[in-house]
């Protein structure tokens, strides 16, 4: 039995204490946007925020989450894709298969909260999630673009990745 506050809503869940938060979210709470990729905190597909802190939920037992802790999942970012990171991702067509993107977006949101205008190097250091499709170039551009959107600038990004047709 655990009491969780997820995306601002209280949940009582019946699970063993060592159940990872990831599987509690997916199987008990029914929030499947948070993904299983490795189970060993390597890939970041399971990233959520706990009290604003980016956390890999596959390696966090549910017993370590206190009832007062605020868990934020991808479903709590915005359902209508209005968050600047979601807007930027849509504008630059970032996702390919999309499976890792919940985690990538959670990591980007956490980065921008702490560092509203990150440099390339800060993005390198913060964005350590694995994307097997290889969307990294657009994720980088997406973080910069989200920073612009958040600061109220709506101009198109200069570094939008597009192909040149000869």
């Amino acid at each position: 039995m655990a009491k969780l506050n997820i995306n601002g809503k209280a949940h009582d869940v019946q699970v063993e204490a060592d159940t990872p938060l990831l599987w509690t979210l997916r199987e008990q709470v029914g929030l499947t946007g948070t993904k299983y990729g490795c189970g060993v905190a390597q890939c970041g597909a399971c990233s959520v925020h706990i009290n604003g802190q980016l956390t890999r939920s596959c390696s966090m037992p549910v017993s370590a989450v206190k009832p007062g802790d605020k868990v934020l999942t991808i479903e709590g970012i915005s359902r209508n894709n209005s968050h600047p990171v979601q807007q930027a991702w849509a504008e630059l067509d970032v996702p390919q298969c999309g499976y890792c993107q919940s985690g990538q977006i959670m990591a980007a949101v956490a980065l921008l909260k702490k560092t509203p205008k990150p440099t390339d190097q800060q993005i390198d250091e913060a964005m350590t999630n694995i994307c097997r499709c290889g969307t990294y170039q657009r994720i980088r551009a997406g973080v910069h673009r989200a920073a612009e959107i958040a600061s109220g600038r709506t101009a198109k990004p200069a570094a939008k990745p597009t192909a040149k047709s000869a």
Partner: peptide, 14 residues
């Protein structure tokens, strides 16, 4: 793209 941005896309695993 849209449902890949907010966790609502249902992959087979979901």
């Amino acid at each position: 793209t849209a449902n890949k941005l907010n966790g609502s896309k249902v992959y087979s695993i979901d």
